[in-house]
Structure formats: C-alpha cells, structure tokens
C-alpha cells in the first residue's frame, strides 16, 4: 500500500494568496485612462501602435465602463486614424458588448457606426464591420452583401466571404441565391453556398449528386454528405452505406460517413444488420487510417447499443 504525502491545503492557500497580493500590488498603478487615450489618439503625431496598445489596456470595469466605451466609439469612428487602432477599438467594443445591460445605451450608435464602416475604403475595416453586423442578422449588412453577389453594386468583400456572412442569417433569406451558386459557381463560392444550404430540403437531389460523385473535391462531397444527413436520414443512410462499403472510396469520406452514422441514432438504426456490422468491423481491421479506425470503433459500439 503506497502512502502518499498529502497536500497541506491551508499552506497552499496562503502561498497562493500571497502571489495574488503581489499581482494586486503590481496592478495598483492606474490603468489607461480613457481621456488620456482619446487625447493621444487625436493628436496629429499619434503613434498607431501606442494607440492600439492603449486601447487593449482600457479598463471595462463598472467605474470606467461608460468613459471607455465612449472613447472606443470615437476611435472606431475616426477616419484620421489607421485601421490597426480602430480594429483594436472594435475588438474591445466587442468585449464590452458582453456586458449588455451596460452597453445598451451605446448599442444603437454602435450599429449605425458599423453600418457606415461597412462601406469604408479599408477592406479590413469593411470586413470587420460586416462580420459584427451579420452576427446579429443586421438587415442593412445583408442587403449590401446580397447586392454585391447579385452584381447590383461593387462587392464589399470576396464572393466566398459574402456567402459565408450571409449564411449566418437565421431566417435564410438568401437561400434561393445560394441554390443558384451551389449549382453554377466554382471553387470557394460554390463550397460556401453548398454549406449555406445545410438544411434546405429542396437541395436534397443536389446533395446526393455531389456526395456520390467521385469527380468532385472530397471537401465538397463531405459538405454534401453532412447536408444530406441533416435533411433526409433515409437518403443519407443509403449514401453512407455505399460510402462505407465502397473499397475505392477515400478514407476521409468514409471516416466522415462512419462517424456520422455513429452519432445519428436514426441513421444507425436504419443500417443495423449483421452483414453491415460485419462489414464495418472488417473495414476497421483492414484500414490503415487511424481516423477511420477510431470512427469504426465508435460505430461498432453504437450498432451494438442500437435496437434493430
């Protein structure tokens, strides 16, 4: 029987507390004052890196919150400043938004400013503004992105990025546009459009076609397979069985199919049979892919647990 030394918890606590006190003493020097930052940022000879560092160090505690947010909004909206400190200000404003009650008085002004910045000459600022606006389904940002894709206006971001940001819309208002792009576009734009159609039942035939087509890129087939799982368990079960049993298929896609079956009880129940289980076990034994082996191990357990 091994007797171990036990930890003296109180001694540990005292030691830890003394280290915290050292940190507290170090922090007793005043944090960056919002007013100091503002005056430095507005000075003609301001140093962009210093402004950025000061923005990052701005306090967000209750006492300083209002003044800090005011200063950050001013910096974000100041076209005389370089993009770097302005993007730092945007990031810190994002942190401030995690105290929504305190941020509420500034919310409307923040959104208006972001909408203005969505049209800014700096691509980085435009993109960052659209990133934030689309997280909250902002209709103005969605309109700008849609018009760019439909070539009604000059695009504000790349087409792939526009599709990705538009796909955040919980209401799916751009689904018809995504269907067109998934069928006709190429490269990243097509991939993003396909991803955006994740739960679109009208695209089930397209998902089946892409997932089964060995001429398509594996990444695209993988997205199509996952979309099919989301939209039709019965049709995905057939596809997944074909992928698993086809020895000429790429391991990555087979691993995705096996993993998807393992984590979707409905699909697992549809496929459960002694013959399928035997094939899965044989696949696990013969493959050299560690990912596929791990997925097979999980699926074997699922098939064992699933009532036929």
């Amino acid at each position: 029987m091994a007797i171990e030394d036990t930890v003296d918890i109180e001694e540990l606590r005292k030691q830890y507390l003394s280290e915290v006190e050292v940190e507290a003493a170090a922090a007793s020097s005043p944090a960056v004052a919002p007013a100091a930052l503002e005056s430095h940022a507005m000075a003609a000879q301001h140093e962009p890196e210093a402004v950025r560092d000061m923005v990052t160090a701005l306090p967000l505690d209750e006492e300083a919150y209002e003044a800090s947010v005011r200063t950050l909004l001013d910096i974000l909206g100041n076209d005389a400043l370089d993009p770097a400190p302005r993007l730092s200000a945007l990031n810190t404003l994002g942190a401030a938004e995690f105290q929504p009650a305190a941020f509420a008085p500034f919310h409307a002004e923040f959104i208006e400013l972001l909408r203005r910045l969505a049209l800014h000459r700096s691509k980085d600022i435009r993109t960052a503004a659209l990133e934030r606006l689309t997280l909250t389904n902002d209709p103005e940002a969605q309109r700008l992105l849609r018009e760019g894709l439909e070539k009604i206006r000059r695009p504000l971001v790349t087409a792939a990025k526009a599709v990705q940001l538009l796909a955040r819309d919980d209401h799916g208002s751009a689904i018809p546009l995504f269907r067109r792009l998934a069928a006709n576009a190429t490269g990243q734009v097509r991939e993003q459009a396909l991803r955006a159609l994740a739960v679109d039942p009208k695209s089930i035939p397209l998902f089946e076609e892409i997932a089964a087509n060995k001429q398509e890129r594996t990444q695209l087939r993988q997205i199509a397979a996952v979309n099919l799982k989301n939209t039709s368990a019965s049709r995905f079960a057939k596809l997944a069985r074909d992928l698993v049993l086809d020895e000429q298929e790429v391991d990555k896609l087979r691993a995705v199919a096996v993993s998807a079956i393992a984590h979707t009880s409905d699909v697992a129940a549809r496929l459960k049979s002694p013959a399928f289980t035997e094939s899965v076990l044989a696949l696990g034994a013969s493959t050299g892919s560690r990912a596929l082996k791990a997925s097979v191990a999980r699926l074997s357990k699922t098939l064992g647990d699933t009532k036929a």
Partner: peptide, 11 residues
C-alpha cells in the same frame, strides 16, 4: 466527432 457539428441549421 465535431465534424458533424450543427448549430442553428448551419454545419
């Protein structure tokens, strides 16, 4: 396993 992660309809 997170390969199949879906949140709010988006994979």
């Amino acid at each position: 396993p997170l390969t199949g992660w879906v949140a709010s309809g988006l994979p």
